[in-house]
Computed example of a mutant assay.
Amino acid sequence: MTHLNRRRALALMGGTVAAAGLAAPAYAQNKTIKVGALRFTSHSASFIALERGYFAEAGLNVEFEFFQAATPMAVAIASGDVDYAVTAVSGGLINLAEKGAIKVIGGALSEEDGIDGQKYLASDAAFQAGVTSCAALDGKRYAVTQAGSSFHYMGSKMAQAEGIDLSFVPLQKVGAIIGAMKSGQVDGWSIVPHIAKPLAGSGALHIIGNVADYLPDYQVTTVFTSAKNAADERGQTESFLNGFSKGADDYAAAMIDGTADQDAMVDLIHKYVYTDRERAKAAPSIINGTMRINKGAALNLASIQDQLDWFQSEGLVDAGISIDQLVDTSYVEMIGA
């Protein structure tokens, strides 16, 4: 089984720089593991599982390592510096899976009918010049973190549906994209609602479409680990997924279904998200970020296949990579399989 340091993992990525159905937890005897995360509301299942003791109940002592983008997380998983993480499928992640370094083992954030999801945005300069719909982005500059990122996928799929051309501009980090959008250096972008809505509410940017209109049931993020953990640490991996799934259930109860205390949930999430803001100012953005985190970490395999097909069609990953190289289907329920 491949084990990589971070330098080797980056090299293998080439030019692209990425519960229902669960068994009872296999107790891991208080083993310390590292979990990669972004300080986004969409990563709340892991935060809840730690704060409410679900990881501890499963025999895991969890330490978080925080990142600013998906690709470094994929590298950290491949190198063994981090054990589990949640992130979008990217060209880099697929390339590492082809090399036998990582496996997708479950699903996390999803677009779901009836739940307000990710948005397509226009800069104020573009909007004032007539870019009031996604179709009007024809020929415009569209921001992505990197070529082969989920932003690239969302923009390209929208452009294909509208029959338009976009000029993709890689800006590496979300903060850099926000700055470029505000200054009018780029014209369009897509992002999760807890970032999109406040920006639109301030008038700095404008919402011009919904990602779900172009990508219904899009599996936005996945749970993944090293191929070694997936193959050789089954008990530990099941324990992690079990704790994660309990966190997702609590999140849905409070933030979507209205069957649990939302204020208490916002207090918990605020320990990790928008920590530089006082609670009163952070709460609206945390609430705006509410999207479905799949029950039981179920994975929409049909959506993952569509993403893999797109990366291959764009020449961003090898045409011979199979879904079996990317996904270990033995851990959770597969939707659309």
Rank of each mutant, 00 (worst) to 15 (best):
A143P: 06
V169E: 13
P25S: 01
D217N: 11
T145Q: 14
A97G: 00
E51S: 07
E162F: 05
A319N: 14
R6G: 01
Y142T: 03
I304A: 12
H206V: 03
A101E: 04
V211M: 04
S156P: 05
A69P: 03
E98M: 08
D328I: 06
Q146G: 13
E65M: 11
Q118C: 12
E314C: 14
N95Q: 15
P193F: 05
L22H: 00
N210H: 11
K295F: 10
I269M: 01
F240P: 04
V220M: 12
A319M: 02
V104K: 04
K140Y: 07
T145W: 02
G315A: 07
A147T: 15
F224T: 08
Q219N: 09
D213M: 00
T221I: 05
A129Y: 07
A253C: 02
G258K: 08
F67H: 12
H194C: 13
D124E: 13
R8Q: 15
E57A: 14
V174W: 12
A196S: 08
I48R: 00
V144L: 08
G80Q: 05
V317T: 12
E314R: 15
Q312I: 15
P216G: 04
L93C: 04
A252T: 12
I164M: 10
V86Y: 05
D138P: 06
S42T: 11
I207R: 00
S149L: 03
D124F: 11
D83V: 05
A260V: 02
A282T: 06
N30R: 13
A125C: 07
I191S: 13
D113A: 15
L22C: 00
S322H: 07
Q236M: 14
A204I: 04
G320M: 01
A129L: 08
Y54P: 00
Y153V: 10
L205A: 07
L22V: 02
A297P: 08
K281L: 11
V144A: 02
A196R: 04
I321M: 07
K99A: 15
R7I: 14
N61D: 13
H206G: 01
L326C: 11
V223M: 11
A147K: 15
F151L: 15
R7V: 14
A101I: 09
G201N: 09
